[in-house]
Design a protein around this nucleic acid. Structure first.
Lengths: 152, 152
DNA sequence: TGACTCATGTCAGAATTCTGACATACCTTG
DNA sequence: CAAGGTATGTCAGAATTCTGACATGAGTCA
């Protein structure tokens, strides 16, 4: 085990561990959201709108790490089901600012409770200092990976 | 900004940061693997086989965080194109141990070089101690999230 | 003013991944 | 030994997500 020195060695690869953790988190979130009939992207969209009302479709897409097109499909469904409202015309440009309806806010409440339990479980076993260290590490990774090829 | 105390607050959520980092890593890997005509799952499969020859389809699926069915589709393509070989009959049970062909090994070499550059870029700006801390943090998160509902 | 660039919303089709289901093989338990 | 439980490979269809493309609105610059 862990004999290969030339490769990337999955056992000691931070990238692999990152994917593993992310996968575990996603699975845990899906598990608690399924009883509420909500997907992770679905929840992410509502949570983003709760914290930053008026985000456009494209901004929501970036915040949820999906494409504009995917978020558009979701937003249309959320709008049709009365969780979200968008003006018929753009106040400026083409961007339509989306907002939660009372129904959307109510739906989000339960989901937030469920998701927070997952987040707490994930943080269990880590001291405050370790959590800070994790936070800094992830921020550093994200920063280093940004603009992979920003050459001339 | 960060005014909401009731929600999960994306700006301070380790879960959100985890997803962001994972997303950035995946994008960076896709970028360097695309010129080689290889997807991330494609690469993951080859890397797994290089480090643990004889893994079965199901084991590869778990290692690459996809379903058996998805990995099966990939494996059949890899076998058809001569990157991987599997015996016609299972030596024991139903599991077919897969192995890299010389061609598969050669293909993996270039990919590994590309992926390692991404991993190094991701680690840039972190001290050895910080890397260790990140490693421990991620391990802790994974452990805490395992077996969410293992109750009776 | 006019040409150019960039971001956005949206439609349509393709590609990928997943869920459901079935048959088979091993292992445990009584 | 028989029965139940678990794991595997695989097929088929559904659902999700992505890529490609187009038109529109706003800002930039000569």
């Amino acid at each position: 085990m862990s004999q290969n020195g030339a490769g990337v060695d999955l056992d000691t690869s931070l990238g692999y561990l990152l994917k593993e953790a992310s996968s575990a988190l996603r699975a845990a979130m899906e598990e608690v959201l399924r009883p509420l009939g909500m997907s992770v992207t679905h929840y992410s969209c509502l949570e983003l709108l709760a914290q930053r009302p008026g985000l456009s479709n494209s901004e929501l897409a970036r915040g949820a790490f999906v494409t504009r097109q995917t978020m558009n499909v979701l937003l249309q469904a959320l709008e049709r089901d009365g969780y979200v409202t968008r003006p018929a015309e753009a106040p400026v440009g083409k961007a339509l600012p989306a907002r939660l309806t009372p129904r959307g806010r109510r739906s989000l409440e339960k989901a937030t409770t469920a998701v927070r339990s997952v987040e707490l479980k994930m943080l269990a076993g880590m001291t405050e200092a370790e959590q800070s260290a994790a936070f800094r590490s992830l921020r550093s990774m994200i920063h280093s990976l940004r603009d992979t090829n920003a050459g001339p």
